[in-house]
Amino acid sequence: MALTLMPNIPDPDGFYDELLHAHDALNDQESEAFNARLILILANHIGDRAVLRAALEAAK
């Protein structure tokens, strides 16, 4: 499977809102830690090492 870089999230505004709201009560340090946990969870869900490597590249 190739890395998807085309729109793939239904209701993007709703998702973005939820993502930011998840940080509501957090200070900067807690937010950073939250983001790290979130990345690790999503990475595990993806699983495919080639896809993860492509994502690391795209985020550069």
Binding site: T4, L5, M6, P7, N8, I9, P12, D13, Y16, L19, L20, H23, L26, D28, S31, N35, A58, A59
Partner: peptide, 24 residues
């Protein structure tokens, strides 16, 4: 907040090259 600024700018940076970020 700082984190919403970080995400906002991440979206903008990605939107240049990647279509997926544009709807955001």
């Amino acid at each position: 907040s700082r984190v919403s600024q970080v995400f906002r700018n991440a979206v903008l940076t990605l939107a240049k090259d990647h279509a997926f970020a544009r709807p955001l």
